[in-house]
């Protein structure tokens, strides 16, 4: 049950490039990454692609298939018709390195700016006690395989290079939510989320949630609750008063 499939694959680098046509054998049960590998082995030995696990676990093989952000290893050929031409292009939000490989270092920079887990000081090894239902919220976010498809999709930075500086993207806003919901973390990142990581840019369109291969409810379970926390904090009278006093205090010095 094999047929010849038509493919267009983007080839090039940071200076130039375009779609190249290929006709490739497709066999029963295959995924798009199998086809890319067959291209490498038979027609284009230097075709660049990232992958590791081939089982949707490592988040390396992100690309766009017919314009949709997807994992190459989890997109089965059977979702397309045999006549269809399948177009594979690199993630659009990140600079191209070569062919299907993009420079995702933006994400690692943003990761480094989120204040880390801050453990309680009074607990030693083996003394942590947490209820399953209390860890479950953060566990959902820790399913993230860092494929960066959500980052690639979010309109705040897709085609808006200028926002990258002040916006960490759904993945890392979710990381903040994860730490905030960790039962034993002792740090407060709520203000940071708004002021340093650009939570305010998010207008809850849920596009990130739609592309997440781990089916994490990024918007509903991480971003919206974070927005609520920020709002609570802003209108919390004591915090508000504290902020005012602090401002006045620093003002008086001048």
């Amino acid at each position: 049950m094999s047929y010849k499939g038509n493919f267009k694959v983007w080839r090039g680098d940071d200076t130039s490039g375009g779609l190249e046509d290929f006709v490739v054998e497709v066999n029963e049960g295959e995924v798009v990454l199998d086809i890319i590998h067959r291209l490498q082995a038979t027609q284009a030995p230097d075709l660049a692609v990232r992958w590791n696990c081939k089982a949707g676990k490592c988040g390396s093989c992100s690309a766009e298939i017919n314009g949709m952000p997807r994992l190459l290893c989890m997109t089965r050929m059977s979702v397309f018709t045999e006549q269809e031409t399948i177009t594979v292009t690199p993630l659009r939000t990140f600079p191209v390195v070569r062919d299907l490989v993009t420079d995702v270092s933006y994400n690692y920079q943003k990761a480094r700016e989120v204040p880390s887990f801050t453990p309680p000081e009074n607990l030693g090894l083996g003394e942590y006690r947490m209820k399953q239902r209390d860890v479950e919220r953060s566990q959902e976010f820790r399913k993230c395989i860092e494929c960066f498809l959500c980052q690639n999709t979010c309109h705040v930075i897709r085609d808006h290079e200028e926002n990258k500086e002040s916006f960490s993207g759904p993945r890392f806003l979710m990381r903040i939510a994860e730490l905030e919901m960790h039962p034993l973390d002792t740090e407060d990142r709520t203000r940071d989320a708004q002021d340093e990581h650009g939570l305010g840019y998010c207008n809850i369109t849920k596009c990130c949630t739609e592309v997440c291969p781990e089916h994490i409810k990024i918007t509903d379970n991480a971003l919206i609750p974070m927005k609520e926390r920020v709002a609570d904090r802003k209108y919390d009278p004591i915090v508000w008063l504290g902020n005012q006093l602090f401002r006045r205090g620093s003002h008086n010095k001048h």
């Binding site: 090894l125 399953q132 953060s138 960790h182």
Partner: peptide, 20 residues
């Protein structure tokens, strides 16, 4: 000890009823 140490780095393993 090495597993418990991971908890101090932020790991969230599945829990028993009594929270371990």
């Amino acid at each position: 000890d090495r597993v418990w140490e991971l908890e101090t780095y932020g790991a969230l393993f599945d829990r028993t009823k009594d929270g371990r």
